[in-house]
Structure formats: structure tokens, C-alpha cells
């Protein structure tokens, strides 16, 4: 479905994606996993033919750089946040994209039901909540039943509830012979939607693993929650990143996914750097993501 060979994308001196290769078979689902700035969005934009790049990307056998329009007709794309002419009414937007996707007939009610926003056809896009907008974006992506869905951090701007519902919806949709390429920095999303995971760090692919190994890499379900004074948190994150961890900030400290055999390594590194840790606890990834939302 997708084949990326030696994709390199630079913005001036900054390398956003360095020599990435991957392939995705029909019906398969692949997560691009990494922290912000790891290159997930860049790869997705290259797949959509939105950016110029070095290397080749084929979608459904079609070269994205040369035959982008046809390649994109195989893709349903959901962005991080739907930014579209928000003066349009929902049914107008559906009509517009149905035409652009060469869909002759659209059942508006069924389309909106399918993504869980029934009876919203007459509203203007700007009147929709964030979650509804994402569902509308999904409905638009599904127009014409494309064989490939490309999702870029689709839950990033949603609250806990909305996120859980959307992930559940995507889970239902992914099991229907569709390929799925999605970017996420959330372990729970990755584990519930992906079959394989491409782990990215600073534009480089660090590993490509089945989802089972991904969980193992994350520490068999362990996330170290470090309580630290606020001023030292950014320094700590920088330090831990430098040693191959993927720490994230939450309200009272830092969450660090840790491999099973290295649970104490972050503590040691911080101690060596004379950064004081007040307290710590070990969480499962699910607890960890919940704790992050509660503080967000």
C-alpha cells in the first residue's frame, strides 16, 4: 500500500526525516511513534505529497511526487485539527469533498451516523466542538471508502473522553481491510490500533518492531513517574532524551517510559547530573496516560 524508500526531508539545515524506509501492506496498520519533533508529521506530509523530498514514496504503486493526485485519491487523511473553511455547513463540506473525491452518491445521514455525529448536517463547521470536527474530518476521510487512512495525531487536541471515543471508533474502522498509517506519541493509542510500530527520534528511525515488542521496549508496561522541582524538569528531559529515553512532561513531574531492565537508569542519570528527584512511582502505560490527562 505504501512503500517509502530512503525518504530524506530537510528544512534548510534542519533534517526532519533522515533516510526513512518503510512499507505497509494492504490491511496492515503502522504507527509512527515518537515525541514531538521526531519527524512523524513530516513523513505523513511527504506521503500526501504536500512537501518536496528526496527518495521515493509510492502509494498504491503510484509515485507521490509525480502522480500525487491519483495517489491521494487512495488516501483518507485526518489532520491533527481540522482547519477548514469553517463558514461551510457540514453538508456543504461533505458535498465539496465528495466531489473532489469523485464520489457520485453520498448518504449524508449514514455518513454522519457512521462517525457518531448524527443530525449535525445543517451546522456550520465553526459551531462544532473539537471532537465533532475530528469526526467530521474522519467522515470526510472515509468518503469514497479509500484503502488507506492516514492519521496525524488525530487525538492531540481532544479531551480524555473525546480521545477514548475516537480511538474506539478508529479501532472499529481499522479492522475492515483498510491500511492505516498513523502518527502518535501515545503508547495506548499505538497499542490499541497498530500492528507494527516505527519508532522515530529526531528524524531518524530507531527501530521498526511489531506492537508486542513495542510494549516490551516501553518496559513491559512500566512508566517511571518522577516528581521533581519545576526548574530542573526541562534540563532533566533534555538529559534523558540524550540517553535514548522518551520522557514527557506532566503536571507534577516527568513521565519516562522505561525498558524492563533499565527502570533505575533514569534515576542514576539524574543523580549524576545533580538533579534532585523528590519522589517516584512506577505506572502502567494506561495509568500513565490517564495521569497525564488529569494534569493537562
Amino acid at each position: 500500500m505504501i512503500r517509502i524508500d530512503h525518504l530524506t526531508k530537510t528544512f534548510g539545515k534542519f533534517t526532519a526525516a533522515a533516510d526513512i524506509s518503510l512499507s505497509l501492506a494492504r490491511g496492515e496498520s503502522l504507527a509512527l511513534w515518537g515525541s514531538n519533533g521526531a519527524g512523524k508529521t513530516t513523513i505523513i506530509r511527504c506521503v500526501l505529497g504536500l512537501l518536496s523530498f528526496q527518495g521515493t514514496i509510492r502509494v498504491g504503486g503510484r509515485d507521490v511526487a509525480r502522480d500525487g493526485k491519483r495517489a491521494r485519491s487512495l488516501i483518507g487523511y485526518v489532520p491533527q485539527e481540522l482547519a477548514f473553511y469553517d463558514d461551510l455547513r457540514v453538508w456543504e463540506a461533505i458535498t465539496l469533498f465528495a466531489r473532489l473525491k469523485n464520489v457520485a452518491r453520498v448518504d449524508l445521514d449514514a455518513t454522519l451516523d457512521h462517525v457518531g455525529i448524527p443530525d449535525q448536517g445543517g451546522k456550520r463547521i465553526r459551531e462544532l466542538s473539537g471532537g465533532m470536527k475530528q469526526r467530521l474530518a474522519l467522515a470526510i476521510a472515509l468518503l469514497g471508502d479509500p484503502p488507506l487512512l492516514v492519521l496525524d495525531e488525530v487525538t492531540a487536541s481532544l479531551d480524555v473522553c473525546g480521545r477514548a471515543e475516537l480511538v474506539a471508533l478508529l479501532g472499529r474502522l481499522s479492522g475492515q481491510g483498510r491500511s492505516l498509517l498513523f502518527a502518535s506519541h501515545r503508547a495506548d493509542e499505538v497499542t490499541s490500533l497498530a500492528q507494527r510500530v516505527l519508532m522515530l527520534d529526531k528524524g531518524k528511525a530507531t527501530a521498526e518492531v511489531p506492537v508486542s515488542q513495542f510494549v516490551a521496549r516501553l518496559g513491559a508496561g512500566s512508566v517511571l513517574h518522577l516528581h521533581m522541582p519545576e526548574p530542573s524538569r526541562p534540563i532533566a528531559i533534555e538529559l534523558l532524551r540524550g540517553h535514548g529515553f522518551a520522557p514527557t512532561l506532566n503536571g507534577v513531574g516527568i513521565l519516562v517510559p522505561v525498558p524492563a531492565t533499565q527502570k533505575a537508569v533514569p534515576l542514576r542519570l539524574l543523580a549524576e547530573a545533580r538533579l534532585s528527584v523528590d519522589d517516584f512511582e512506577l505506572l502502567s502505560p494506561r495509568d500513565a496516560s490517564l495521569s497525564q490527562e488529569n494534569h493537562a
Partner: peptide
């Protein structure tokens, strides 16, 4: 333009 589409294709 939109309305004809609606009548032809979109079942509202």
C-alpha cells in the same frame, strides 16, 4: 451548484 448535488447525490 451545491443544491443540485444535494438533490442528485446527497440524501439529507
Amino acid at each position: 451548484f451545491a443544491h443540485t448535488t444535494r438533490r442528485k447525490g446527497v440524501v439529507a
